[in-house]
Design a protein around this nucleic acid. Structure first.
Lengths: 229, 229
DNA sequence: GTTGCTATGATTGTCAACAATCCTGGCGAA
DNA sequence: TTCGCCAGGATTGTTGACAATCATAGCAAC
């Protein structure tokens, strides 16, 4: 029998629901400004309303969802200025982490990293956006964890999650996925070769494309017509 | 009639309760490993259990409290290694922020900053630990907000909050409070003079004393006897 | 005297009904 | 036609009761 969801405590179920909703937002199943009705989600996901409620609160904290008192939650549209600010901090933190990774890289980091890189490459080849998204997250998590400071990693992950909402544009784009795949390969190479300068440069460059693609897409497609200032 | 708590929505009440509990932890009213019983707190603070529950979840997220399923919450003791890691990241981020503050400083920042500095000095002079704690937070918030990147400020504040539990040691120490007061004065001076190098150095140095005092105190007083490795 | 088990009490976790709030559509008057 | 108002419906927010879980103390057996 399946044991993953059998003995699940509420806290786990909340995280699970939050992750599912995050997926649906990131993959573009749920569009910006789309309403998220608690009861409907509760039924669809097979949990109580209470659990959905906490999950939405979690997503609000992260910034993927906006919650207005007595009115409910909607998928939030990140405004370009905010995205730019977040990316600028990400750049600093990820550079910092990359600079602190001990080189030569430990084998017990390089191994899993190569495995995740391949997983990601396979998902890209198969056109599996969801798989690519998840394995991409795990790749970077594993990479940055090697820097040795868990709190720095936590910050980096938190910021990455904040702009996950911006991924619906790039997550489905074959060109961006292929580019990310190649850059991952280059990072692994640089790590294996102990080339710090190259690694740091790659990490920094890695952020640019998705940011620019998102900003361009938002300005072209999603900005509310009546509100342009 | 008092209007601050009159129209308060639940979310505000949760924040309020969380802040009260944080105060009590920081000021040493609640000691590490002390149990926090939901119903008791609900009655004492005049709110429903539900609100206390969410507040405890919030404090758990921040790291001030530990929550074990079906067993309740206790005040968490930060272990020295964790404190050291957090402070190392704080040092980087606060230095970064200090480097980005536009100089010469804008008058509408310097003014409030001076006011908060004075507020802090007065609290220190009066031996008002709570007042010193709160005005200290607001001083740094105002200072770093001047860097112009709200997300960086948010990160800095989050990290500071994580080690607030470590403040019960320094919050009551007249020497540390006096030192902090003088360093604040020096920061304001450096800002007014446009001396970036001095400002950055001061911010970096400012973190050391409380970190070291906490680690020393924890190792001397709180480590569980039976568990020393 | 020590160990293991059971009953009890204390505390948290879950739930569904109820209350409060807000949007929507329809109706009437200017 | 347009504006304002009111009722109805939909959705969230709150509450208290109930169920599940865990620590503790007392008792019995070794």
């Amino acid at each position: 029998m399946p044991e993953t969801t059998l003995k699940a405590q509420t806290a786990d179920r909340v995280r699970s629901v939050a992750a599912m909703l995050e997926d649906e937002i990131v993959l573009g199943w749920l569009l910006p400004r789309e309403r998220l009705v608690e009861e409907e989600l509760a039924e669809r996901l097979g949990v109580k309303r209470h659990v959905v409620r906490e999950a939405l609160a979690e997503l609000e904290r992260v910034g993927l969802v906006e919650r207005i008192p007595n009115r409910g939650a909607v998928v939030r549209l990140l405004d370009p200025a905010e995205v730019r600010q977040i990316y600028s901090v990400r750049e600093v933190l990820e550079t910092l982490a990359a600079e602190q990774i001990p080189l030569p890289i430990a084998p017990d980091v390089l191994g899993p990293l190569r495995a995740l890189q391949q997983l990601h490459a396979e998902a890209v080849a198969a056109g599996d956006a969801r798989g690519a998204f998840r394995s991409n997250i795990r790749f970077h998590e594993t990479l940055f964890r090697a820097c040795g400071n868990p709190h720095l990693v936590e910050l980096i992950q938190g910021l990455a999650q904040k702009v996950h909402g911006a991924r619906s544009i790039t997550a489905a784009s074959p060109e961006h996925l292929a580019l990310a795949r190649d850059e991952h390969a280059a990072m692994v190479e640089a790590l294996a070769a102990g080339d710090r300068g190259r690694l740091v440069a790659l990490c920094r460059q890695h952020l640019g494309p998705s940011r620019d693609a998102y900003i361009a897409a938002v300005e072209a497609r999603f900005l509310r017509p009546g509100r342009g200032s």
